[in-house]
Write a protein that binds this DNA or RNA. Structure first.
Lengths: 153, 153
DNA sequence: ACCTGTGCCGAACACTGTTCGCCATCGTCG
DNA sequence: CGACGATGGCGAACAGTGTTCGGCACAGGT
């Protein structure tokens, strides 16, 4: 994982569909070299995949929220089961198991407020393991597409 | 945005680097047709870009956390400025402006716990606008790479 | 000085992206 | 009801691309 690898990783985070030749040109190396590097990065698991980023509105998702959930009893089985069940729901785009007063955090997108409300009532009010949940609507957001490498030592 | 477009969008979320011909074959249409569809989806802004997914460990990020922040005075200027400042920091991968008791939610990744601690103290304890912040370490996470289209009406 | 391994390069070839003209389909309007 | 324009899909063709492979330079070890 030298400087060249980092540069490749950064470039592919910005645009995963650029041609191997463009990538090579931009880094000042031969296409064959570049290809081999990229293949190794994939094989090593550094590059996990390539994904298209889609406008949420085009997927009919205009409302975004974070839902903090408190589970009881808090054992491994309940956590794993509930996490797996949540991530399967179409409205849920991410689930985090946390340290702190709340146990789970679900990142949710819904069609509108009514849909979000229905989701909360149907999916979180019913299960007995959920003792409390708290929803925070997202007004604005800013995401980073390309993450640099943090200085190691 | 018909069924075919949805299928294209889904396939490209799964793997953004598959060849246009494979994509076309998989959908049962001609490569030229497929290409035109994809171009229109990009032009319409449905497809926003293609990004490589990178293993956080390879970027030296072993600790992940959500930090809830309370700002005062809570006016547009303070929010915009602070949000913009946060997203510029290398440790911050996303910032959300929320409705609820907390105003901002920052998604953070750090090298280790010490690094996270330093980040919190240096970046959040100092500014006067921050009246409170609360950190929640992430133990586990599950993300969805491909989001389906929610039924519209 | 001599290996040996590693990583990069450039040529070669099959395959791909991309363009373009043609055709079928469908809705519109005379 | 028929003519017609618009729309969208198709397949052939060509430039450009991914991918392989043999060779080469350089470094470290013996």
């Amino acid at each position: 994982m030298d400087e060249l690898d980092s540069a490749i990783v950064q470039a592919l985070q910005r645009d995963a569909r650029q041609t191997n030749r463009d990538l090579a040109r931009q880094l000042g190396i031969a296409p064959s070299t570049c290809l081999e590097r990229v293949r190794l990065l994939r094989a090593r698991g550094v590059i996990r995949g390539y994904h298209a980023e889609i406008d949420p509105a085009a997927l009919n998702r205009k409302v975004e929220a974070f839902v903090s959930i408190r589970l009881r009893p808090l054992n491994r089985d309940v956590i794993d089961r509930f996490k797996a069940a949540l991530i399967e729901l179409p409205e849920v785009i991410a689930v985090y198991v946390l340290a702190g007063d709340e146990d789970l955090l679900a990142h949710v997108t819904a069609r509108d407020l009514d849909h979000l409300h229905a989701f909360l009532i149907d999916r979180l009010s019913r299960p007995r393991e959920v003792v409390t949940f708290r929803s925070q609507i997202v007004f604005q957001s800013a995401q980073k597409r390309v993450r640099e490498r943090l200085p190691g030592e």
